[in-house]
Amino acid sequence: MNTKRVTFPNVHGELIAARMELPEDERPLAYALFAHCFTCSKDLKAVVNISRALSSRRIAVLRFDFTGLGESEGDFSATSSLGGAAVLAAASNIPTTTAIVTIAAPFNPANLRKMLGISTEQVEQTGQATVSIGGRTFTIRKSLLDDLESQQPTETLRRLKAALLVMHSPRDQVVGIENAADIYRAAPHPKSFISLDSSDHLLSDPRDSSYAAGMIAAWAGRYLVLPDTSTPASIPPEVIDNRVIARTTADGFRTELFANGFPLIADEPVDLGGGNEGPSPYEYLLAALGACTGMTLQLYARKKGWPLNDVVVRLSHQKIHAEDCRDCDEKDRRIDSIERELEISGELDGAQRQRLMEISDRCPVHRTLTGEVRIKTILRPV
């Protein structure tokens, strides 16, 4: 994952802290602006998960802290940050907006007072109210409440010029599912709704945020204008030499891979400390051998004119003691053992099948694994 720190001033000149999540080659198909939920931050786990999942699908995402939250400067009580409601209100002022997504968004921001249990009497007397959210204390000014109550969500939604995707959980205990129904009814077509089923308001379970990200990326793909690939564009040095890039973050073992322009994910099983969000490195190794084996057999059969249909390769890997290997020289160490099973379909005779099994040992990846390999490591300055 390619994450860049960004700052920009708000209307009062205060610096807003942000992160830009980019594909590894820094050539996104589209850009997304992520407005987080009330009193949350750009570093909320669900925000990070969705942003990174979208960037792995070549959608760059700018996630930022609203004024006075997270790493941003300013006074939170002097601003408002209602995520989905904010982007709905702002969309009409951004003509390049193609698609909008709301996640657990309130329909009417004016309901904030009731949702937070803010006393009308206290606000009228002091001009502000103090509320506790998620164990943290926040000051809410009367000006903020007055601004929210002046919003006209129905009229705002009717003016939308972009496609809309509404995502909400029927079990949301903070913002009820009826808000999603109201947003959907008020908005013009094209519009879609996806239920987040059993997730909570903040999509605390990583599986829920991963699901949401996948659905958003698939849905948004219908509205993206893909670039013309007939004319090569300027390509960064990292991509010109076609290197595979792997980036492992500090939280767990989840690794973002970028190979020949294709995003992949690697991870470790839960019992090994990972999140099981993708194949393990050894499983990718077996996948490479399996793919290379199948391709090699198909290429050989085509050259021979043999009626080979499908090739299925099943592989497993384990560590064994060298003493259990009759062809091993050193008997006091453990070695890697890969078992490969071939399933070949087609009108082939016994001699042809035997020959294809022999040819499987000639696939380039097989030769790499069984040959002498040198790995040179250099440390790149940061």
Rank of each mutant, 00 (worst) to 15 (best):
G68V: 05
S55K: 02
A53R: 14
S77W: 00
G68I: 03
R52T: 11
L54T: 08
L62W: 05
L44C: 05
D43L: 05
R52I: 00
G70Q: 05
R57H: 12
A60M: 09
S56D: 15
L69A: 09
A46W: 01
S72C: 10
G68E: 03
L44V: 08
A46C: 13
R63E: 01
V61Q: 03
R63S: 13
N49C: 10
L44Y: 12
S77Q: 02
R57T: 04
R58G: 03
G74P: 11
L62V: 14
S55D: 01
F64C: 12
D65F: 01
G68R: 00
K42D: 03
K42H: 09
L69Y: 00
G74W: 07
R52K: 13
S77T: 00
N49S: 13
E73P: 11
F66A: 13
A46R: 04
S55C: 07
G70R: 06
D75T: 12
I50S: 04
E73A: 15
L44F: 11
R63I: 04
L69K: 01
F66K: 07
D75I: 10
S55W: 02
E71M: 10
F64K: 07
D65V: 02
I59M: 14
L54I: 09
L44N: 12
A60V: 10
F66N: 13
S72A: 10
I50L: 11
N49K: 08
L69M: 12
K45P: 04
V47M: 10
D75H: 02
T67A: 14
S55R: 08
V47C: 11
T67P: 14
E71Y: 09
S41I: 03
T67D: 00
